[in-house]
Simulated assay, not measured.
Amino acid sequence: MLDTVTLAGTYITTKGHRKSRSLSRLRIVRRYVSPIGLVLLWQIACSVNLLSTRVVASPVQIGVTGWMLVRDGTLPFNLGVSLLRAGIGLGLAISLGVMLALVAGLSRIGEDVVDAPLQVLRTLPALALVPLFILWFGIGETPKVLLVALGATFPIYLNLHKGIRSIDPKLLEMASMLGLSRWQTIRDIFLPGALPDFLTGLRYAVGVSWLMLVVAEQVNAESGIGHMMMDAQDFLRTDIILVGLVVYGVLGLISDQIVRLLESALLAWRPDARRGSAL
C-alpha cells in the first residue's frame, strides 16, 4: 500500500514538473511571437515598396550591415566602449543611490538634508547638463560616465528609500526587544525588507543607464555605439543607425533579463515570485 502511494506521489510530482516546463516554454513563445511578427511585417513592407529603404532600412539590410560591421571590427570595438561606460556609470549609481537612500531613509534629518536637492536634480533634463559637464570635466570619458551615473542614481535612491520607509514597525519593535544594535537592525531588518524595492529600482536604473548613454555618446564622443550612429547620420546611412538602435535594444533586453533572474534568485521565498515563474 505504501509503495502504491509513493508511486502515485512520484507520478503526480513528475507530471507537475512536466506541466511547469511546458508552461515555461509556452511563455517564452508568447513573449517573442509579437516582436518576430512585427519584424516580418516590416520586411514585407520594405519588399513591396510600402516603406522606402532609403528612409528606413529593411531588417535584411540591417542584418547584412551589422554582419559587415562585426567583420571589420567596428561594432565590437564600439560595443566594448559603450559597455564599459555603462558598467562604470551603473556601478557608481548603485553605490551612490544606496548610500543616499540609507542616509535619507534611516534618519529624518538625513531625509531633510538629502531628499530636496535630489528631487531638484531629478527634474533637470539631461541635455541641459551636458554643456556644464563638458566645462567641468572636459570631453573625455568622465562626463559620459557621470551622466550615466547621474541618471541611474535616482531610480535606485527612490525605490530603496521607499522600501526602507515601508518596513513594518512591528519588525523594528521586535529588533528592539531582541536588543539588536543599529547596525544589526539595518543588516537584518532594513536591507532584507527593502530588497524587493531595491531590485525594482535596479531594473529601472539599468534602462535609464542605456538612455543616458545614448545622450552621452552623441556629444563630443570619439567612440561608442552613439558615436557610430552620429557618423552614420552624416552619410545618410539609416542601416547603420538602425543597427545601433538594435544593439541598444538588445543590450537593454539582456540587462533587464539578468536583473529579473537575479530578482527570481534573491526573492525565491516570496509566494508571488513562485506564481510569476509559473505563468
Rank of each mutant, 00 (worst) to 15 (best):
S181R: 03
R122N: 13
M174K: 03
P271Q: 07
L23N: 10
T185E: 04
T13N: 09
L266G: 00
G105L: 02
E263M: 12
G105N: 11
K170G: 12
S20Q: 09
K19G: 00
R275M: 09
V219Y: 11
I36A: 13
S166T: 05
V208N: 00
R54A: 15
V247M: 13
T74R: 09
P59V: 14
L92S: 01
V246L: 14
L40D: 08
A205T: 07
L102K: 08
S82A: 12
A104I: 00
A57M: 06
I225C: 07
L213W: 02
I28R: 13
L199Y: 07
I258C: 08
Q61E: 14
K162P: 00
F198E: 01
V208M: 09
D239N: 09
A194I: 02
S22G: 14
D168M: 00
L242V: 09
P59R: 08
L195D: 09
G193D: 15
L2Y: 13
S20G: 01
L100M: 02
P143M: 04
V39Q: 06
V243L: 08
V130Y: 07
D272W: 10
I156M: 10
R71D: 11
A93T: 03
S277I: 00
G249E: 07
G89V: 04
T238K: 01
P117F: 05
R108E: 14
R275W: 03
V214M: 11
S58G: 12
R71A: 11
P169W: 08
P192N: 11
M177V: 14
R85V: 14
K19T: 00
L23D: 12
V145T: 02
S47V: 15
V81H: 05
L195T: 15
M177P: 00
S181C: 02
L75H: 05
L195N: 03
D72R: 02
L160G: 05
N220G: 07
R25G: 00
G105Q: 09
S176N: 15
L171S: 09
F137Q: 06
G244R: 10
V103L: 13
L213M: 09
R27S: 14
V120H: 02
P155E: 02
L266R: 10
I240L: 03
R25W: 12
L75N: 05
G89H: 06
L172V: 03
M229K: 10
V148Q: 05
A128W: 04
A175V: 05
R237L: 01
L23E: 11
P125A: 03
C46L: 08
Y157M: 00
A194N: 08
A221V: 06
Q119F: 01
L51K: 12
V247H: 07
G276Q: 15
V81T: 11
P117L: 04
V208S: 02
I156C: 01
V148N: 05
I134G: 05
M68L: 15
P76F: 07
L102V: 03
S22N: 13
P76T: 14
A221L: 06
L146R: 02
I164V: 04
A175H: 06
V5N: 12
G201W: 03
I12E: 15
W67C: 12
L178E: 12
L102R: 07
P143E: 04
G110Y: 06
